[in-house]
Amino acid sequence: PTPPYLKWAESLHSLLDDQDGIHLFRMFLKQEECADMLDFWFACSGFRKLEANEGNEEKKVKLAKAIYKKFILDNNGIVSRQIKPATKSFIKDCVMKLHIDPAMFDQAQTEIQTIMEDNTYPLFLKSDIYLEYT
């Protein structure tokens, strides 16, 4: 069978589909001081997956605010710097007006994912962390 670390080189999704892959990629991103990008990406996925059942509404609002505060509000943060201004305004509007929607972070997640695919992911595959692991 193909060893997991070879699968990680196939695509960003193959890497993020494996716990060890995530762990190693996060170590690399931490070294590059951009681990928040990965945390944000997973936070967006987790937010979208929240069940729409009764009583969850309060939790969703709280979580949307927490994601907004941690990753988007601070304009100097790595995630905030990489997301388009229009996308940030959209999320801010949703949070302020309490228009909480499972897809409200989708655009921002896509933007961060594109940057990881074009930039940090290829760098990771060439990094000492990955090469030593293999």
Binding site: L16, D17, D18, Q19, I22, D39, F42, A43, C44, S45, G46, F47, K49, L50, K59, K62, L63, K65, A66, I67, K69, K70
Partner: peptide
């Protein structure tokens, strides 16, 4: 009720794949 940080951390973990 969880603090914002706990909630965020749980959310991040919930989106990760389960152990092989």
């Amino acid at each position: 009720m969880d603090s914002e940080d706990d909630l965020l951390q749980k959310c991040i973990t919930s989106a990760m794949p389960k152990q092989r």
